[in-house]
Computed example of a mutant assay.
Amino acid sequence: MAREHIPSACPEPSFPVRTCVGCRARAAKDELLRVTAGSDAHGQPAVVPDPTATAPGRGAHLHPTAECFELAVRRKAFGRALRVATGLSSAPVGDYLDSQKYQP
């Protein structure tokens, strides 16, 4: 049985939309920070920022705010979104967000 296309009340946006792993709100892809599973400066598994969105592999998206970052850490959303079973350090993303806060 073929599915019928049912038109929605809201038209599809003409730009890529992603969901923030922190607050779970949908936003334009260019408004969010992409993060990937990688390693920190000591070689330990960690969530690392990918501001250019060019790193290979699975990524997750996050509003670049402290509130969404803290929600994602508290909900343990990074591990689920990146499909990584082991605990990942989120310190590199926190450091990145702190460094971007003071940029003009």
Results as ranks from 00 to 15, higher is better:
61 H>I: 00
80 R>F: 00
79 G>V: 02
96 Y>F: 15
52 T>M: 07
81 A>L: 11
56 P>D: 11
88 L>W: 03
76 K>V: 02
87 G>Y: 12
59 G>I: 05
51 P>Q: 12
100 Q>K: 11
76 K>T: 08
58 R>N: 02
97 L>G: 08
83 R>N: 07
91 A>E: 14
64 P>E: 05
77 A>P: 04
57 G>W: 01
55 A>H: 11
54 T>L: 05
54 T>M: 09
73 V>R: 15
100 Q>R: 13
53 A>Q: 13
86 T>H: 14
58 R>E: 04
85 A>I: 01
84 V>T: 13
100 Q>H: 04
93 V>K: 09
51 P>S: 06
54 T>N: 10
100 Q>G: 07
80 R>Q: 12
75 R>Y: 13
55 A>S: 14
77 A>G: 09
73 V>S: 12
88 L>V: 05
63 H>A: 06
68 C>M: 09
58 R>M: 00
84 V>K: 10
95 D>V: 09
88 L>S: 10
60 A>R: 03
83 R>S: 07
74 R>H: 13
99 S>M: 03
89 S>I: 01
60 A>W: 03
92 P>H: 10
93 V>E: 10
56 P>E: 06
99 S>A: 14
81 A>Q: 08
57 G>C: 03
75 R>M: 06
93 V>A: 13
71 L>D: 05
77 A>T: 00
72 A>F: 00
95 D>R: 14
53 A>F: 01
69 F>T: 06
80 R>W: 02
75 R>D: 14
86 T>C: 08
68 C>Q: 12
60 A>H: 02
96 Y>G: 06
76 K>D: 12
100 Q>F: 01
79 G>D: 08
56 P>M: 04
79 G>Y: 03
61 H>L: 01
99 S>R: 15
86 T>K: 14
64 P>L: 01
100 Q>N: 10
59 G>M: 06
60 A>Y: 07
66 A>N: 12
78 F>P: 11
58 R>K: 06
89 S>L: 03
100 Q>E: 12
85 A>K: 14
73 V>P: 07
61 H>A: 03
78 F>I: 04
57 G>S: 08
90 S>P: 08
54 T>G: 12
90 S>I: 04
83 R>I: 00
83 R>L: 01
93 V>N: 09
75 R>H: 15
66 A>T: 15
56 P>S: 09
51 P>M: 07
60 A>F: 01
63 H>K: 06
79 G>Q: 11
64 P>Q: 07
68 C>D: 08
95 D>K: 06
67 E>W: 06
94 G>H: 10
66 A>D: 13
67 E>Y: 02
86 T>I: 13
88 L>Q: 04
51 P>V: 04
90 S>Y: 01
60 A>C: 10
65 T>G: 03
81 A>S: 15
101 K>L: 08
88 L>F: 10
85 A>D: 13
91 A>Q: 14
73 V>C: 11
70 E>S: 15
72 A>T: 11
53 A>R: 15
96 Y>D: 02
82 L>D: 03
97 L>V: 03
87 G>S: 10
56 P>Q: 08
73 V>L: 07
86 T>R: 15
67 E>H: 13
87 G>W: 06
92 P>D: 04
98 D>A: 14
80 R>A: 13
82 L>H: 05
100 Q>C: 07
95 D>P: 00
55 A>E: 14
71 L>N: 04
100 Q>W: 02
69 F>V: 02
59 G>C: 04
69 F>P: 08
73 V>E: 14
77 A>D: 05
91 A>S: 09
69 F>M: 15
85 A>G: 02
99 S>C: 01
